[in-house]
Design a protein around this nucleic acid. Sequence first.
DNA 1: GCCGTTTTCGGCCCGACTGTTTTCAGTCG
Length: 573
Amino acid sequence: MENSEIARIFLEISELLELKGENTFKIRAYQKAARSIEGLSLDLDQVYKEGGIKALKEIPGIGESLAEKIEEKITTGKVKKHQQLIRRFSPGFIELMDIPGLGPKTAMKLFKEEKINSIAKLKKAIKSGKIKDLPGIKDKKVQNISAGIKLKEKAKGRFLISEATEYAAAIVKKLEKMGPVKKIVPAGSLRRQKETIGDLDILVTSEKAEKITAGFADLALVSRVLAKGPTRSSAILKNNMQCDLRVVKPSEYGAALHYFTGSQQHAIAIRQLARTMGLKVSEYGVFKGKKRIAGRTEEEVFGALGLKYIPPELRENRGELEAAQNGKLPILVELEDIRGDLHCHSDRSDGSNTIAEMAAAGREMGYEYMAITDHSVSTRIAGGQTEKEFLKEMSAIEKLRTKGIKILKGVEVDILPDGSLDFRDFVLKEADVVIAAIHSRFKMSKKDMTKRILSAMDNKYVNIIAHPTGRLINERAPYEIDMEEIFRVAAQTGTFMELNSHPSRLDLNDTHCRQAARHKILVSINTDSHNIGGLANIRFGVSTARRGWLEKKDVLNSLPYAGLLKKLYQKRR
DNA sequence: GCCGTTTTCGGCCCGACTGTTTTCAGTCG
């Protein structure tokens, strides 16, 4: 987990430099480097081990100085500059800037004038009325800060994509009824289908902007209005999610949609590219001098910059501009490419529908096949089956096989701490597809955990490693594993990797997918459904695969039935 | 602090809204 650790340190340095009032471009350099590292699909540790400082400097946004800091972190465990900055302010100080509406300037003022260096002290100062004496801070500002503190205390962080999708749909429905609107589209990280969503951005085209922004602020879903202008409104919704609404003219739709879809890093890269061509890009269009040359559609905006259309899921400044320039953009996998689900549970273990009901729902979705993969004995909490029960289930499946959808006999076996499986080989042999997963002892060392998974992959019956990192978004960190090594051995043994589509998992994540594709490992996009309602989560898995640049050819369950079986049985030979 | 078919120095994305201001700084996305 060196990457996220270093990214966090760089972000903290940038925040502390901001407090210090450092050169804004230096601050941005740290932020840019942090983002770049977050999106990296290789371990910095590995990169450094193999190529030293020189290899680190090839990462975009990393130069001499930052490469040395990465080296310092890897070899000594810390970064001196980071430590010095933290010492200079107090550890609780950075969190002041997390309060919405309170930025570095105000934080510094509070510190200098009143020695406020934590949220606790700030609350005290507000109560005593002390901070109203400071220059530039009056009633309104104090009110905003108080509201910001409350909000921060209530906020659960980022929202799952499933929840954001629901709320966006609700807002869109309300706005549609409000009057003269032409288009309403959720933009922002939701349109890019990020695994978590910080806030909603909704874009509306209308000639009557003020009517829309005013009506939005009055919606019953809104609990507090943060800002309300003629073309933009911001509000906190009843579930504590922030929602920003922007209204633009139809002629500006493409440029606005592109800009509000982001990511910020992508938008910056686009604007930089425009500058080198003597153009200017803003949310109103592409301009040559004063003249607007594009903006009605996104295709027009990209076209004006000599780029092919870049799908929203790729817009993270992870090489998509170069790919669009060179005609090397991937043809991303689509929902329609998925021919079946290879990880589903029934009421034989912890699912709530029968095998027949699950199969019928799969057929309803147009699937060609579906694997029933109930738990094995060790996962007792999930009604895991004994070997005997499992064999009985397999014969039940045999009988159902003529229902218009191919049902594959499957099982989700446990990878025990020593790397062995809890079903014996002669039992596994009866399944068409064997999924192996870890459900216990999550806190083993990186070395032991990696070994545990590698030895499972060595078994010739194991086809797929399910939810490979075990993370639960907002709940449980991924376990420590050497992903690069796991992919290497997966390629060697002919083992596939799951992309679990559950919105709390999305595991593999987007950058792992890209890494897997580089190793030429097929990814199986599964839902891990425990009832028929769960099957629809496949959309989030496909989105994540798209964010990971996966094409149809990279996805195991885009294969037709015969091709799939061939792949599954290949390893047993 | 990064980076280079304008550059190894001198640039670095761009605009909306708020609050405290008589012309703009701060914050945000």
